[in-house]
Amino acid sequence: MLEVRQLHVSRGGKAVVHGFDLDVAAGEIVALLGPNGAGKSSIVLALAGAVARSQGRVRVHGTALEGLSPDAVRRAGLAIVPEGHHLLGSLSVHDNLRAAAMLLPAAEVEPAIARVLKILPELEAKLAQPGRTLSGGQKQMVCMAQALLARPKVLVVDELSLGLAPLVVRRLAEVVRRAAADGAAVLLIEQFTTLALSLANRACVLQRGRTVWSGGALALREQPEILHGSYLA
């Protein structure tokens, strides 16, 4: 379970997230929606330990994440699929996976890679390829595999569909559903709201660093004016 209470984040001396609250239960998918500049990326970076929280509490299955480094956050069970399909371009896919598995005991690395390749078998034929030679969709699959290596308790997916073909997006959506079915708490940040609401159990709409709506995904699909208002404000 992910629990966020009264999260405040400042960047460049400016407050960008104001008193953000969120719960994501094990096996649940929650969509975090809002226009560019709403504060979504700052929340992701704060959860990952990449930017400091000026105030607030974050827990993963009761473990406090405040003040932890990004590596310690991952050890606590929170994994992030970052926006932008970032890989080590000069390394092979296999070495990218090994690098992401460095927090695991050495004896568990290859079994963990074998397990994620069963989830994303498309990567099997790409293991020897340098990361820079992959398509955008293949890079996103590698990023997803990296996040899943340590069986995270919380999976944060930032812009799943960005720049990807619909067929690839559908495939990655299957993986997100499977992660939740396997017991992970999933937080999905996504500009493509139709996709997000088709996957999510609940949704939270962010505007200028504040929550302006929170509730069931079905209810939000039935009230599109809420989203329209937040994106046009």
Rank of each mutant, 00 (worst) to 15 (best):
K14L: 15
A15F: 00
V17Q: 03
V17T: 10
H18E: 13
H18R: 15
G19A: 15
A26N: 08
G27H: 13
I29Q: 08
L32Q: 11
L32V: 13
G37E: 12
G37I: 13
K40D: 08
K40C: 07
S41G: 10
S41K: 02
L45R: 15
L45F: 04
A48G: 14
G49M: 10
A50N: 03
V51E: 14
R53N: 09
R53D: 07
R53F: 07
S54C: 02
R57S: 12
V58R: 02
V60H: 04
G62Y: 10
T63S: 06
G67R: 05
G67N: 11
P70I: 02
D71N: 09
A72V: 03
R75P: 01
G77M: 06
L78A: 08
V81H: 03
P82R: 08
P82K: 09
L87P: 00
L88K: 01
G89Y: 05
G89S: 13
S92K: 07
L97T: 01
L97D: 03
L97E: 02
R98P: 01
A99P: 00
A100R: 04
A101K: 00
M102I: 13
L103H: 05
L104M: 10
P105A: 12
V109Y: 06
P111D: 13
P111L: 12
A112H: 04
A112Q: 06
A114W: 00
A114G: 06
R115W: 12
R115C: 06
E122G: 00
E124W: 04
K126Q: 14
L127F: 09
G131D: 04
S135D: 10
Q140W: 02
